[in-house]
Amino acid sequence: MNIRTRRYFAIFITCAATLALYGTAAWRVEQLRQLPREYASCNFERCIPHNATLNALR
């Protein structure tokens, strides 16, 4: 492998790794977005719906 081939290979691997990380993050965000709103505030099996916290402020 000459220098040019190694450079192109390194650029390709860097781009592939970046796209893999971005794709994984986008997939995780999409999975979380599809959850019902009640699960957004769950922590250690104790769920607090969003409207309950807003009602306390009124």
Rank of each mutant, 00 (worst) to 15 (best):
R58C: 01
A16I: 09
F44V: 04
H50G: 06
L35I: 00
E30K: 13
A17C: 00
I3A: 11
N51G: 02
L57P: 00
T18E: 01
H50K: 06
A20I: 03
L21Q: 06
R7Y: 14
V29E: 13
M1S: 14
R6T: 03
L19V: 11
E30L: 10
L54N: 05
Y8N: 12
T24V: 04
E45W: 07
L57M: 00
N43K: 14
A25W: 06
N51V: 01
A40Y: 12
C47T: 15
R6W: 05
R33I: 10
R28H: 04
H50L: 10
N55R: 15
A56Q: 06
N2R: 12
T5K: 15
Q31H: 09
E45H: 04
L21V: 01
I11V: 10
A16E: 01
I3S: 13
R46H: 08
A20M: 00
E38I: 02
E38H: 01
V29W: 09
C47E: 06
Q31W: 03
C47K: 03
V29L: 12
I13T: 03
I13K: 00
P49C: 09
L32A: 15
C42P: 00
N43Y: 06
A56F: 08
A17S: 09
A16R: 04
R7G: 04
T53E: 14
Y39V: 05
T5M: 12
C15S: 04
A25F: 13
M1I: 13
E45R: 05
N55Q: 07
T18K: 09
T14K: 01
I48K: 15
R7P: 03
R33W: 14
S41W: 07
A40E: 14
F12I: 09
R7K: 15
P36D: 12
R46Q: 14
R33G: 11
F44Y: 10
L35P: 02
I11G: 02
R46D: 06
R6N: 08
A10C: 08
R28W: 01
L32M: 13
A25Q: 00
R37I: 11
A10V: 03
A40M: 06
N55F: 09
S41P: 03
Y39K: 08
L19K: 05
I3Y: 12
Y8G: 03
C42I: 06
L54I: 10
R46A: 07
R37H: 14
A56Y: 15
R4L: 14
A56M: 14
T18M: 15
R28F: 04
M1T: 12
T53L: 15
W27M: 09
Q34K: 15
F44N: 13
E45C: 03
N43S: 11
P36S: 08
